[in-house]
């Protein structure tokens, strides 16, 4: 999926932005979003999930990822975008998320399609304005322009630790 990673443009970016980070980008309702590629564990196709009762709709359920139970979050639903039937390009990006206690969890996010891999230097960041997307600005690390297109870089730890997803680490006293 990332054979585009070696295109000329990308090489340029790598040269200028040695300080930068690589982002995996994906499409969601026509917008391009990016997540820190170091957090991406794998990308897999959509498969059946087991629903978890009494959870918000955007939590699609859990899947078996080689023996571990991994919850899936539908990002369209999470960002209150129109729901789309899952198709051939629908993918699950399995990411590693850290909570406040630096405890690592594995989660999957369901997106429309995977797009590209970019090297984005920290200088290319712009803070996220409140530009009226459905996305809570807490979830946004910043905005970057790549190929004259805007990419919304996500802060996945914030996104995946909010509200319902917050881990109740301990149920003990």
């Amino acid at each position: 999926m990332n054979d585009t990673a070696t295109n000329a443009h990308d090489v340029d970016l790598m040269e200028v932005g040695s300080e930068g980070q690589q982002y995996l980008t994906f499409m969601l309702a026509g917008e391009e979003y990016g997540v820190d590629i170091l957090r991406v564990q794998e990308i897999k196709g959509w498969d059946t999930v087991t629903k978890i009762p009494n959870t918000p709709e955007y939590i699609r359920g859990v899947i078996n990822l080689r023996g571990t139970i991994v919850p899936l979050i539908d990002l369209r639903l999470r960002f209150s975008l129109a729901q789309l039937d899952y198709g051939a390009t629908t993918v699950v990006i399995v990411i590693k998320v850290l909570n406040e206690n630096r405890k690592e969890r594995t989660m999957g996010i369901v997106v429309d399609a995977v797009s590209d891999v970019y090297n984005i230097s920290n200088d290319d960041f712009r803070a996220a304005p409140d530009f009226g997307t459905a996305v809570d600005t807490d979830f946004i690390r910043g905005l970057a322009t790549v190929n004259e297109q805007m990419v919304i870089l996500l802060e996945i730890d914030n996104m995946c630790n909010s509200a319902e997803l917050k881990i109740i680490d301990s149920i003990s006293e």
Partner: peptide, 27 residues
């Protein structure tokens, strides 16, 4: 028995999950 809390959280009414012979998850 697999824990739901490893990657998610405790859900009322459920004590965990398991993986059935066909690879799907059952609660």
């Amino acid at each position: 028995i697999k824990s739901l809390e490893t990657n998610f959280r405790k859900i009322d009414g459920l004590s965990g999950a398991t993986i059935l012979g066909d690879g799907t998850v059952a609660l």
